[in-house]
Design a binder for these strands. Structure first.
Lengths: 205, 205
DNA sequence: TAGATTGTTAATCGATTAACAATC
DNA sequence: TAGATTGTTAATCGATTAACAATC
C-alpha cells in the first residue's frame, strides 16, 4: 500500500508560502508562525499548519518556524533546490517578456532554449540565446533532457506544439495560449490566460 | 433574506467554459452538451450542469445547449458583454507584452491607459498609447472612471501602486508582480506569477 | 513558570458525483 | 416512439476549521 496522495490544492499553495517566506527572509525576518504567515497571505493559521503537516514537522511549539529551515524544506518538497532547464517556445511579445524576466533565477528555473517558427526570428539572439527553428525541437529537447517547457505561441498552434513537446520528453508545460490544452495522463499543464483572470474579477466588480 | 452567494470556485470556472464555447463557435459548432464540453475540458458533465444551474436553465433535455445562446449568457453573467477599460501600470517587458496582446479585444477588455515612472518611457507611445507618469494616476483614473487595472511593476513597488490604484477607484487588479498584494474587503485581486505555476508542476515531475 | 504555538483530531462545512425523473 | 440529455436531489467525498493536548 502506497501512502495517501497529497491533495493538489495543498500542493498549489506551497509555492505561495515559499514566495512569502522568501520575502520575509529578504526583509531580515528569521522566525514566523502559522498565524503570522496566515495574516500575511489571508489564509487561516490552521490551514497552513495542516498543509505543512502532510510533509513533516517543521515548527516548534511556542516559537513557530525558523524561516530559513522552512524555506529549505519547501524547496526540497517542490524540487526547486536546483535549477530546472526550461524550453521556451514562441518568441513573440510574451516569449520576449519571459526570456527577459529576471524572476526565474533563484526560484528554480532557467530558460535554456528558445524556439520559434518565424524565419525572420530564427538565428537572432534573445537575452543571449539563439532562437532555434521549432522543427529542431524534437531533436534538441531530448538531447538536453529537458522536461519543462513554456508555451507562448498563438492559440491555433498551441495544441500541436504541446504534442511535439510531449513526444520530445517534456512532462510539464506552462501555457500562455488562450486555449485549453489536452494532454495524456502523467503530463502536467498550468495555463495562464490574463483574460480568464480578468473575467474572474469582473463578475464581482 | 438575500439569495445564496455563488461559490467562488464556480465563478472561476465560467471564464474557462466561455473560452471553450467561443472556440467551438469559431470552429463552426452550434450545439454542445455538458458531456461534450466536459470531455473537451477534462471536467465531469455533472459539474458543468451544476455550475450552470446556479444561474438559470440554459439547455434543452435531449439536445443540449445552443452554444451561441450559452456564450451570450456567460458573457452577461461575467459582465463582459461590453468592453472594460483597463489601466496598465508598468511599461517594462511584461507591460509591453500586455499592451501588444491582441487577445483582449472581443473578450471584454481594452487597455486604455499606460503608466510608468521611468522618465525615459514617459511620453513614448506603446501600441498607440502615450505612457503617462504614474504620479498622474490618481488624477486620470477617477477622471475616466476606470475600475480595472493590470499591475506589471517590480515586486518592491507593487503594494504601493496597488494602494494608489484603489484610492483612485480601482476595484479589481490583475497583478503580475511576484508578491502577495494585500487589499481591503471588496477589492478583487488575481495574481499571475509564472514561477508559482512552474513550481506547481515540478512537484509532480 | 506562564504564555505561545505547534501538530493533530474531530467536527463542520462545502463541493463533487451519481442517479434519475422530466422532457426534448 | 426511443434515445439523449437536462436540471436537480441526495449521497458521497474532500477540505477547512475549531479545539486542545503537548511542549517549547
Amino acid at each position: 500500500m502506497t501512502s495517501a496522495a497529497i491533495p493538489d490544492i495543498v500542493i498549489s499553495r506551497l509555492p505561495v508560502y515559499l514566495r512569502a517566506l522568501t520575502r520575509m527572509l529578504g526583509d531580515g525576518q528569521e522566525v514566523t508562525s502559522s498565524k503570522d504567515l496566515g495574516e500575511h497571505l489571508g489564509i487561516s493559521s490552521a490551514q497552513i499548519r495542516k498543509d505543512l503537516s502532510h510533509f513533516g514537522e517543521f515548527g516548534k511549539q511556542g516559537t513557530g518556524y525558523q524561516i530559513r529551515f522552512l524555506v529549505d524544506q519547501l524547496r526540497r518538497i517542490l524540487k526547486v533546490e536546483k535549477e530546472w532547464d526550461v524550453a521556451l517556445v514562441g518568441a513573440g511579445a510574451i516569449g520576449h517578456a519571459l526570456a527577459h524576466y529576471n524572476g526565474f533565477r533563484d526560484r528554480g528555473f532557467r530558460i535554456s532554449m528558445i524556439f520559434d517558427k518565424d524565419p525572420s526570428k530564427i538565428g537572432t539572439l534573445i537575452n543571449g540565446f539563439e532562437v532555434q527553428n521549432v522543427s529542431r525541437l524534437s531533436d534538441v529537447i531530448p538531447q538536453r533532457g529537458i522536461t519543462l517547457a513554456m508555451l507562448a505561441v498563438p492559440a491555433e498552434a498551441a495544441q500541436a506544439v504541446a504534442n511535439e513537446l510531449i513526444k520530445a520528453g517534456v512532462r510539464g508545460i506552462l501555457s500562455y495560449a488562450p486555449i485549453n490544452i489536452s494532454v495524456p495522463e502523467g503530463i502536467h499543464v498550468q495555463q495562464i490566460d490574463p483574460v480568464v483572470h480578468l473575467q474572474r474579477i469582473t463578475y464581482y466588480v
